[in-house]
Design a protein around this nucleic acid. Structure first.
Lengths: 155, 155
DNA sequence: GTAATTTCTAAACCTAACTTGAGCTCAAGA
DNA sequence: TCTTGAGCTCAAGTTAGGTTTAGAAATTAC
């Protein structure tokens, strides 16, 4: 229940769909700064509902929590994004998203070019080529992402 | 150096760009089954170079190691994919990829619709909508870019 | 025949984004 | 007032996909 002096962590969780533990984790990561009431319990601004939403949306776009913290800190006064802030920030999202889509489409095109070629071990296969592999981002071994191309010879 | 009786883990690593530790890890995950020489060292088939390449490519398409193990097991005789197998399997890749691209494009469209609307806290915002969020992943670490199939466990 | 390199195992460690548990306190309703 | 539920802290666990480390044994190079 929202009292006049800020909202509880449970209420914030209920309104955003986040787990209570996640909100506490976000606080630990510096994404939100609740104050404490007399009994030591966290109290949040109502605006933090929107702040949490912003975090969740930014996550959908693939931003890490540190990056999101950066967005939130860059806002004058460290406030939760307003309509204008949001418009500005979404340009960045858009670019990020476009890049990711482009990467996947390229990957798909390579796949189409390779279906049935059976060339997985050949140096001219674009899927196998380390240069192309280095271009991808995401989880996976780090040495695929920018390390040694090395002399590859098909066998 | 490849002897006539199979290749060493170091040579396999060199030929694929994988770390030796990664190959041992794949063995532990049941993705490859080397035998041992008299001294207890692993020996691999030459064909495992191709097998490793297959694993790396499948990873690029977002498949988890258990899924990839499934692909490799489904092959008659448990062999490394041939040209024909590869053609068959890539259909699955293609579908998976298409889905991921579609998801991202939808996200982008929603973003375009929302730029400047400042509606982050409103229930009719598609980016904010809990239904849409629920459509992706429940709890645990969220693998946000596209769905990561598999390994969904309750709390 | 040495020396150098590779490989072996097992366990610990790593990152990200959280969740779970233990043990305790605070707040609210009957 | 009692009781239940919500909240607190801190540490440890989880998942995926590995890497690092340490000490010993095998293999290769000279």
């Amino acid at each position: 229940m929202p009292s006049s002096a800020g909202i509880s962590i449970g209420y914030l969780a209920e309104r955003t769909g986040l787990a209570v533990s996640a909100i506490r984790y976000y606080e630990a990561q510096g994404l939100v700064e609740p104050w404490r009431n007399a009994g030591g319990q966290r109290r949040f601004h109502r605006a933090d509902i929107r702040r949490m939403s912003f975090i969740m949306i930014a996550q959908q776009f693939g931003f890490s929590l540190p990056e999101i913290r950066g967005f939130l800190k860059d806002l004058p006064g460290g406030r939760t994004p307003t309509k204008e802030d949001w418009a500005r920030i979404s340009e960045g999202f858009r670019t990020h998203l476009d890049q990711r889509i482009e990467t996947l489409v390229k990957l798909r095109d390579n796949l189409d070019g390779c279906i049935g070629c059976g060339c997985l071990s050949l140096p001219n296969c674009k899927l196998y080529n380390p240069e192309d592999r280095a271009a991808q981002k995401g989880q996976g071994p780090r040495y695929l992402m920018g390390d040694r191309p090395e002399a590859e010879n098909g066998h």
